[in-house]
Amino acid sequence: MKRVLAFLRRRRDESRARTDGGSTESRSTARRWLDNDFVRSAPFWGPPFLLMGFFVYAAIGWNFLLSLTDYTGFGGADYSSLDFENYRRLFEDPAIWEATRNTFVLLVVFTITCLLIGLGLAILLDRQVRFGRGFRTIYLLPFALSFIVTAQFWRWMYNVNDGIVNQFVGIFGIGPYNWLGNPQIVLGAVIFALVWQFSGYTMVIYLAALRSIPTDQYEASRVDGASTLRMYRRVIIPQLRPAMVSASVTLVLFALKAFDFLYAVFGGYRPRQGADILATKMVREAFGQSQWAYGSAIAIALFVLSLAVIAPYLYNQYTRGNL
C-alpha cells in the first residue's frame, strides 16, 4: 500500500514538474496531494476495504497457513513446522473422493435444473399474466427463508411413514421410500429440495433480463412470422446468456458451499451416507472432530474450486466493461 502511494505521488510530482515548468508558485505539495482523487476517495472505500480484506483475504491466507500445520484438538496451532502432509492425506482419503463426487453431482444437477425451471417460470410470468407480481412473490418465497427453516419443512415432506412425498409417489403405486436415509436416493432428494428453494432465484434473474429486451424485438419476430416457440428459441433465449452465466456462477458457488441445509436436514455434522459433500466434510473435520489443520486443507480445496469459477467470471465481466 505504501509503495502504491509513493508511486502515485511520484507520478504526480513528475507531471507537475513537466506542466508548470517551474512556475509552481507557493502552493504546497501537501495541499495538492490532498486534492488527489485517489486520496480523497480513500476515506470512503478504505475502511470497508480493510475490514473486508482482513476477514476475507487475510483469513484465506491464514487458513492456508493452518492447513500446513498439524493442528488438532484444543489449544493453539503450532506454526513452527509446516508441510503439505494434510494435502497428501486429502488425496488418500476415500471419503474425500466420495464427497467430491457428490459435490459435482449436486453442482451439475442442481445448477442445470434450477436454470431450466427458472427459465420456464420466467417465460410464463413474462407473458403478461394477471397477478404476475403475486406469482413472482410466491415462487421466490422459499428463497427468502433460512435453510434451517426449509430443512424442517422437507424433513416433514420426506417423512417415511406418511410424508407428502411418499403419499404422492404412492399414487403411482411406488414407494414408500426412505428418502433421507437411502444412500441411493438421498442426494436426489436433497437436490430436489434445494431446487425448490432456488428456482425462484433463477426466475428473477431471467425475468429481469427478459424485461430488458425491447418489445420491438418481439413485434419484429412476430411480423417475420415466427411462432411463439421459435421466437423464444431463436430471438429471446440467446439474449439471456449473460443472465444465465451470472445465475450459474451463483448457483455453482452455492452448491460448493451448501452446508446449512444438510446440517439441519440431517440434524448434525454428518449427513446420511451418500449425501456428504466437501462443504459438510470440511466443517465436520474441523468443528466436529477438531481436525483443524485437515479441515483447513479441505477448505483450501473448496476455495480453489470456487476460484476456478469466480476468476473466469470476473475476468469476463471485466473485459465486457461490467465492473
Binding site: S15, R16, R18, T19, D20, S23, T24, E25, R27, R32, D35
Partner: peptide, 19 residues
Amino acid sequence: ESITSGTISLDDRVINNIP
C-alpha cells in the same frame, strides 16, 4: 480534467493546479 502541459490563467493567475 488535468492539463498535460501548457498553462491556463485567469487574470494572469495560473490556475492549472487550482481545484
